[in-house]
Design a protein around this nucleic acid. Sequence first.
DNA 1: CGCACTTTGTGCATAGCTTCACAAAGGTAC
DNA 2: GTACCTTTGTGAAGCTATGCACAAAGTGCG
Lengths: 235, 235
Amino acid sequence: MTRRPSHARERGIPDATVARLPLYLRALNGLAERGTATVSSEDLAVAAGVNSAKLRKDLSHLGSYGTRGVGYDVQYLIYQISRELGLTQDWAVAIVGVGNLGRALAAYGGFVSRGFRVAALFDADSAVVGEQLVGMAVQHIDELESVIDKRGVSIVVIATPAAAAQQVADRVIAAGITSILNFAPVVLTVPDGVDVRKVDLSTELQILAFHEQRKADRETGSPMMAEDWAEAMDA
Amino acid sequence: MTRRPSHARERGIPDATVARLPLYLRALNGLAERGTATVSSEDLAVAAGVNSAKLRKDLSHLGSYGTRGVGYDVQYLIYQISRELGLTQDWAVAIVGVGNLGRALAAYGGFVSRGFRVAALFDADSAVVGEQLVGMAVQHIDELESVIDKRGVSIVVIATPAAAAQQVADRVIAAGITSILNFAPVVLTVPDGVDVRKVDLSTELQILAFHEQRKADRETGSPMMAEDWAEAMDA
DNA sequence: CGCACTTTGTGCATAGCTTCACAAAGGTAC
DNA sequence: GTACCTTTGTGAAGCTATGCACAAAGTGCG
């Protein structure tokens, strides 16, 4: 992956900043709905739950869109962030795997919000194929390649069982897809140039459990000692 | 948040490492199923999709569980990581909001896998309350506090509409919960000592769209110039 | 016009994370 | 026991991200 020096003005936005832009956008939309015209970095930072210096540095990567002494114009900033994120165009999204999760995703309103449109649904189970869902027929996985091509799909959401995920990924990549959102609990192996983002429920729970356990340990003041470990195992 | 110096052996595991432990655990379980007894950091790193030096450094934070010249004992390492993550005990999880997403989460097998158990389901809609789901009756949100207490719930999953999420968070925190997994697209404001992890579908899509757009720009070789910006807005 | 006030944009110091590279440690063969 | 091979665990270097603190730039009032 090519990485430019961070001081390069020409389109060199840090990943950490990109990951926060959607957050700012949401906070700004909230302000816009309430009719706020301008907002200071301090107020916006509070709304987005981040440090205000970080917010200003993030925004400075997009350009110099604020006015000193005043703040940022809400509408203008919404436009600039949207454009930077590519939300001024419409992205056709396909969902592969119409189980419980796939259905929930298809129906999820915020999903289809600004810039995204569910353009196809696929499943391997012929009992599900043909079913109508959010005004769209579920199609058989055999038609994956042709439909992706025909409907101009550019982002694929994988919501299949773990065992099928890699195979689906290989096929959509062969069909020209380079952006995948993976809900299946597996590490996908993909060639360079393909972006995969992972959403993993059990991983998140496990991280919470770690911190919860640590909190509990701290209260009871009983840090487990090395001696306890040995007897629990006899490998 | 208290942060110990990173060289402190005594229970100072970096956040970035904790976030990867579930990944290693999953890869190890895969190896164990295939009957593998020991694994090198190189092989495990490939299976988990990370750099092998990073893997070794991560594991070294837990202790010195490898054997030089051989590798790691798969079963032993599974045990150690599980223990560190707190998965040797059972965590009672409550799901608040039984819409499409809440149902999908309740039904999701991998969710309940090792260490976690769905112990309660709540909803505000009386049309849903009483419904049986994964062998459990959906309860009214009024009973939130008493049921959390009675069933020893320690992790709450919020799968409500955005508007209700903060209110639910306030209530469960008041009831003593300090670990929340939030699926609602809002920034939750919580006191110190409460851990919130966020899973956000539209954020992930927007990050993918950003990279997808950049790839497209690079191909067509048409970086949009500053002059184009002005006319699009007339703030 | 000038002064006081507000808020941005950023230089700089610091903290945290990643990766390289290698010494130390264990296994194996003879 | 010795020589050789493999693989871990970690020091050190480099990179990225964070947050402070302040100069620069704008507003508005008298």
